[in-house]
């Protein structure tokens, strides 16, 4: 069983030439996720959501504290879906998938094609990313994350760069694959609708830390954005967000401005 442990995680970016003040992305975040659950991390921009995922993925180092993704005590295999597709433009779609796959055989190619089929892209395996639309590229990104058979799945606002309709259909794809695989998932978003639609549990971040983490989403799946229960849950999340007050929501400095 996969576990993600986040203990007192702090990240401060030192001042740079174009930003003379240091930026605190995360200030003492505590959180833990265990088992095959889908956790949505919601928060306004600047609350360090992407930084959090990057630290869990091991591509950024925390200033203090720790974040670990473990599978039976050993470092977990990560599958990461980014905000942008992040495909190698000079490799075909299927080669992009195999790039992250460890075994190289006919079987792994078949596996890649299987996941491409899951996102409705079996036709484009031998095309280059630039030949695909943005939505199709992002679907390749989702297929790639599932291909490595990840213990922990990280999703960083995967639909935010797409138009609303494309995003909606991609959420369907994601939900369908997730229901089949049930990977431990950390899903970062600023969109409450997305969060309620996909997650078992919602964590609200604010600049500097966790605003609250006591909101399970106990609704039957598959969920549709129009379901009354989803709407209701959505309203509740927004009500709690509004109740926090500007200073908590945006950080003291931001609110004072």
């Amino acid at each position: 069983m996969a576990t993600v442990l986040i203990e007192n995680l702090t990240k401060v970016y030192p001042p740079t030439s174009n930003n003379p003040t240091q930026v605190q992305a995360l200030g003492g975040v505590n959180m833990s996720v265990t088992g095959n659950v889908f956790v949505a991390i919601v928060g306004p921009s600047g609350s360090g959501k992407t930084t959090l995922l990057n630290i869990v993925a091991g591509v950024e180092r925390p200033t203090s504290g720790a974040a670990r993704a473990l599978q039976e005590g050993v470092p977990a295999q990560i599958g990461y879906v980014f905000q942008e597709p992040r495909l190698l433009p000079w490799r075909t779609v299927v080669d992009n998938m195999l790039y992250v796959q460890d075994r190289k055989s006919d079987r792994s190619r078949r596996e890649a094609e299987f996941y491409l089929q899951m996102v409705g892209l079996s036709e484009v395996a031998d095309l280059y990313p630039a030949q695909l639309s943005a939505g199709m590229q992002q679907r390749v990104g989702i297929a790639r994350a599932f291909l490595v058979n990840p213990d922990v799945l990280l999703l960083d606002e995967p639909f935010s760069h797409l138009d609303a309709l494309t995003g909606r259909s991609l959420r369907d794809y994601l939900q369908r694959i997730w229901l089949q695989t049930r990977k431990t998932a950390l899903f970062v978003t600023h969109d409450v609708t997305e969060a309620v639609e996909l997650a078992d549990r919602i964590v609200m971040l604010r600049p500097g830390g966790v605003a609250y983490d006591d909101m399970p989403v106990d609704l039957p799946r598959p969920r549709r954005p129009g379901d009354p229960a989803v709407r209701e849950m959505q309203d509740e999340v927004l009500r709690r967000f509004d109740a926090m007050g500007a200073a908590v929501r945006f950080g003291a400095a931001e609110a004072a401005r």
């Binding site: 007192n8 401060v12 240091q22 605190q24 830390g209 966790v210 609250y212 983490d213």
Partner: peptide
Amino acid sequence: MTSAPTLTPQSVSELSVRELRRGL
């Protein structure tokens, strides 16, 4: 698990000294 520890200004400046030294 609800926790929202407020970060004191002190601890921030300690962290930044370390980063600053690395930058230097």
